[in-house]
């Protein structure tokens, strides 16, 4: 599936920030809480991550060892269908018995029986929508720039809070009164 382009017409006005790389950490609280991003929905979770977000497949396999969709641990990326409004949470490997239990397809998956995501359904025709993405731990720094470069849909209050946390932000980036698609790029 070709990489899809978010339908930005619904999110005006657009705002772009060009920041120094060391300002990435200012976005970590927001990325932990979760951000709405434009996406093509009706596809599989694997398609979302690998095709739309352009995350290499081996990184998804080896590094993103814990994935939740709508609060349920996911084991099968290829049969988990993304819906409009789905909440997708990505984490690296976690410590503890529960960390091991939450692992995708892990040996201890039985211990979370009852809350695991039940895969099923088939991919539908592509349509524009939004997905709420959360990033945890090591993935904040590793995937944060990629998510931010695709654009976040922020409510005015969210944008205002975010801008307060970014020192030396560009002067023309004041929040307005409507939802905004914020794109963030970082200097090399």
């Amino acid at each position: 599936m070709p990489r899809s382009i978010p339908d930005q017409s619904k999110f005006a006005p657009g705002l772009t920030l060009q920041l120094d790389a060391d300002q990435l950490h200012a976005f970590f609280p927001l990325l932990q809480k979760g951000v709405a991003v434009p996406a093509t929905v009706g596809c599989t979770l694997k398609c979302l991550l690998c095709d739309q977000f352009s995350i290499p497949a081996d990184y998804v396999t080896d590094r993103i060892t814990t994935i939740f969709m709508d609060n349920r641990p996911v084991d099968d990326l290829e049969h988990t269908i993304i819906q409009d409004g789905s909440r997708v949470t990505l984490s690296a490997a976690m410590p503890g018995l529960v960390g091991a239990t939450m692992r995708r397809g892990g040996f201890y998956a039985a211990l979370r029986q009852g809350i695991s995501h039940v895969s099923g359904g088939a991919a539908a025709a592509d349509q524009h929508g939004t997905v709420r993405i959360k990033l945890f731990n090591l993935l904040l720094a590793e995937l944060g720039p990629l998510v931010l470069a695709r654009g976040l849909i922020l409510e005015p209050a969210e944008l205002a809070d975010l801008l307060k946390s970014i020192p030396d932000r560009p002067l023309d980036s004041s929040p307005g009164t409507s939802r905004v698609l914020l794109t963030v790029r970082f200097n090399e």
Binding site: Q32, T66, F68, N71, P73, T89, S91, A92, A93, M94, P95, G96, V98, G99, M102, R112, I115, K134, F136, N137, L138
Partner: peptide
């Protein structure tokens, strides 16, 4: 990586999500 960077409290987000 995970434990040296964040300690055991790295579990808060994951347990809450679950």
């Amino acid at each position: 990586e995970g434990l040296p960077a964040y300690g055991t409290n790295v579990l808060t987000n994951v347990l809450n999500e679950a």
